[in-house]
Simulated assay, not measured.
Amino acid sequence: MPAPQKKILFCLAGVFSFVCALGTAAAIGTQLWVKGTILCKTGALLVNATGPELEKFIGEIRYGLFHGERVRQCGLGGRPFQFSFFPDLLKIIPASIHVSVILFCTVLIIFTLVGMGFFLYNAFGSPYETLHGPVGLYLWSFIACSCGCLIMILFSSEVKIHHLSEKIANFKEKSFTFKTHSERFADSFWIILACSLVHFLNTLLIRLAGFEFPFSKPKDSGTATGAADLMY
C-alpha cells in the first residue's frame, strides 16, 4: 500500500483511539452504567398490591462506578436517596471486583492513549524497533481491547451474579425489603463495548495497511529481515 494511504489509515486509527479514551473517561464519572426498578416487597405484601396498585411500590435506581441514586417507593410517594460506593457500600458489595473494574478502566484509558501516540508516530515518523512499529500497534490495540472485555465481564458478573442492585436497594433498610424488579445496562456500559470494538477495528486497519498479524509466517522468509519488515 502506498505511504500516503498508510498515513491516512494510521491517522484514522489514532483519532478513533483518542475518541475512545475520552469516551471511557466520561463513562467512568457518570451514573449511567445500570438503570433499573426496585420493588418494595414488604409494602406490596402488606396491602396485597396487584396491577396498577403495584406501581406505587416500584421505585427507580441508577448507578455508576462511584455513586448513584435510588428512588424509594413504598406507597407514600418517591423518596430519592443519593449513595456513594466509597466508603459507604464497600461492606456489602464485592469490593475486589468493583475495584478491579475501576482499575481496568484506568488501564484502558492509558493504553488507548499509548496506542494513539504510536499510531501517529507510525503515520508521521520512522519506526525502527518492534514496539515502535506495526507489531507494537497490534500489541497496544490487543491490550486495550482485552481490558474493555474484562471490564464488561467483571461488571456484568458484579451486577447479575452478585445482585448488586438489590444489595444497594436494601442498604440501611430495616423495615422494608426491596427486590430488583428490572434492570438493564445503560449508556456508559455500552460505551466500553463500543471502545472494545473500535480497538478491534484498529487491528483490521493495521492489517489493511499491509502488515501481517504478529506470529504469522511470512510468505518469503528467505528475503525478509526483522528490520525491513518494520520499516516503511
Rank of each mutant, 00 (worst) to 15 (best):
G133L: 00
G125S: 12
S146M: 11
V159P: 01
S126K: 15
L139A: 15
E166T: 11
E158G: 02
F178M: 02
L120S: 04
T177W: 03
Y138K: 11
E129S: 15
P127A: 12
F155D: 01
A169V: 08
Y128S: 10
W140P: 01
C147N: 00
M152Q: 14
H162V: 05
F119N: 07
F171W: 10
G133S: 12
T130G: 10
H163Q: 04
V135Y: 10
V159K: 10
N122T: 04
I168S: 01
E173L: 03
E129Y: 15
E173Q: 12
L139V: 12
S126V: 15
K172W: 02
S156L: 10
C149A: 13
F118I: 00
G133E: 04
G136F: 01
P127G: 08
V135E: 03
F178A: 06
P127K: 04
P127N: 13
L120T: 01
K174L: 09
L150W: 08
P134I: 03
G133R: 02
E129R: 15
H132D: 08
S165N: 13
H163C: 07
I151V: 15
M152A: 06
A144W: 13
N122C: 13
G136M: 07
S157W: 04
L154P: 11
L131N: 13
L154F: 08
K167Y: 01
A144E: 07
H163E: 06
F178N: 00
K160Q: 11
P127M: 01
P127W: 05
S157F: 05
G133N: 06
T177I: 12
F171D: 08
G125H: 04
A144K: 09
G117F: 11
G136A: 09
S156C: 09
P134R: 07
F142V: 01
S157N: 10
F171E: 05
K167N: 14
Y121W: 05
C145V: 14
Y138W: 12
L154Q: 08
C145L: 14
F178G: 02
T130I: 10
H163V: 09
